[in-house]
C-alpha cells in the first residue's frame, strides 16, 4: 500500500493543481495576517474558508483524481498488489497531498507571523486538525461516489450535490425542523443532527473554541453537558474519526467486489 501511496503522492505533488491549492492557502494566510494584522479575525475568516472550501475542493479533487487515474488503477490491478492497497494507497495519496497543501499553505504564513508566541496557537491547530479531517472525509466520500458511478458526469454531479447538501441544504432542513417542532425539547435532536453532518461537526468543534460564551447561553441540560465539558470535544473528534473510517471501510468493501 505504501508504494501505491508513494506513487500517487508523487504524481500529485507534481500536478499543477496541488500547487494552485497550496498557493491559494499561502496567499490567503498572508493576506489575512499581514494585511489585516489581526489574528482573531484571521482565525474566524479561516474557519469559514475551512468549513466550506475544504470539503468542496476535497470532493472535486477526489472525484477528478479517481476518474483520471482509471488507467493507473487498471495497470495496478494486473500487478501482484492487493485491491484494498491500490485504493487505500491512492486515497491516502490524494488526501495526504491535499492535507499537506492545507497545512503548509496556512502554516507557513502563521509561523512567519509568529504564531508560536501567540496564544491563538491552540485555536489555529484545532482549525488545521479540523481541516485535515474534512479533507480525509470528503476525499473518501468522493472516492466512494466515483467507485459506484462509472459515468463521470453523473459521478461529478453527485459529488457536487453531496457538498451542496452537506454545506447548505442540510442546515436549512435542520433549521426548518427546529422551527416547526419548537414546542418539543430539541437539544438532543439538534446535537444529533449536528453529529450526522461532518461539516456541522467540524463547525461545532471550532465553535467550542470561538463561541463558547454564546453556546453556554442556552438552557438545555444536554447542551450544557456537551458544550460545557470536554465531552463535546471528545464526542466531536470521535465522530470525525468515525466519519473518516466508515467510508474508508466501504471503499475497501466495494472495491473488492467491483469489476474492471
Amino acid at each position: 500500500m505504501f508504494k501505491i501511496l508513494k506513487y500517487s503522492f508523487y504524481d500529485l505533488i507534481r500536478s499543477r493543481w496541488s500547487y494552485v491549492y497550496f498557493l491559494f492557502y499561502l496567499l490567503l494566510g498572508f493576506v489575512l495576517l499581514f494585511l489585516n494584522n489581526d489574528v482573531s479575525k484571521a482565525i474566524i475568516t479561516l474557519m469559514n474558508v475551512i468549513i466550506i472550501l475544504v470539503p468542496l475542493i476535497s470532493t472535486i479533487f477526489g472525484i477528478m483524481y479517481f476518474y483520471n487515474s482509471k488507467e493507473f488503477t487498471e495497470l495496478l490491478l494486473a500487478q501482484p498488489v492487493k485491491r484494498s492497497s491500490i485504493f487505500l494507497g491512492q486515497y491516502l495519496g490524494v488526501a495526504g497531498s491535499l492535507t499537506l497543501s492545507l497545512v503548509l499553505g496556512l502554516g507557513i504564513p502563521f509561523v512567519l507571523y509568529g504564531l508560536f508566541k501567540s496564544d491563538a496557537i491552540f485555536d489555529f491547530s484545532l482549525l488545521l486538525v479540523t481541516g485535515a479531517f474534512l479533507t480525509l472525509i470528503f476525499t473518501v466520500l468522493a472516492f466512494n461516489i466515483a467507485l459506484s458511478n462509472e459515468n463521470k458526469i453523473k459521478g461529478f454531479g453527485y459529488a457536487v450535490l453531496l457538498w451542496l447538501f452537506m454545506a447548505v441544504i442540510y442546515d436549512g432542513l435542520f433549521l426548518m425542523s427546529l422551527i416547526i417542532f419548537k414546542q418539543y425539547p430539541l437539544d438532543s435532536f439538534s446535537l444529533g443532527a449536528t453529529i450526522f453532518n461532518p461539516i456541522d461537526l467540524s463547525r461545532t468543534l471550532i465553535l467550542l473554541k470561538l463561541d463558547i460564551s454564546a453556546l453556554l447561553g442556552y438552557t438545555g441540560a444536554v447542551f450544557k453537558k456537551f458544550f460545557g465539558t470536554d465531552q463535546g470535544l471528545f464526542v466531536s473528534i470521535f465522530m470525525l474519526i468515525f466519519w473518516t473510517v466508515l467510508p474508508i471501510w466501504r471503499l475497501v468493501f466495494v472495491s473488492r467486489k467491483k469489476d474492471f
Binding site: 504524481d11 500536478s15 482509471k70 487498471e74 495497470l75 494486473a78 501482484p80 485491491r83
Partner: peptide, 21 residues
C-alpha cells in the same frame, strides 16, 4: 489471493497509462 499475479505478465488491450509519469 493476489500474489499469484506475480506469476502473470499482462498486456492490456488499451495502453492507457498515468499521463503524468
Amino acid at each position: 489471493n493476489f500474489k499469484y499475479r506475480k506469476k502473470i505478465d499482462y498486456l492490456p488491450q488499451i495502453a492507457n497509462f498515468p499521463g503524468n509519469l
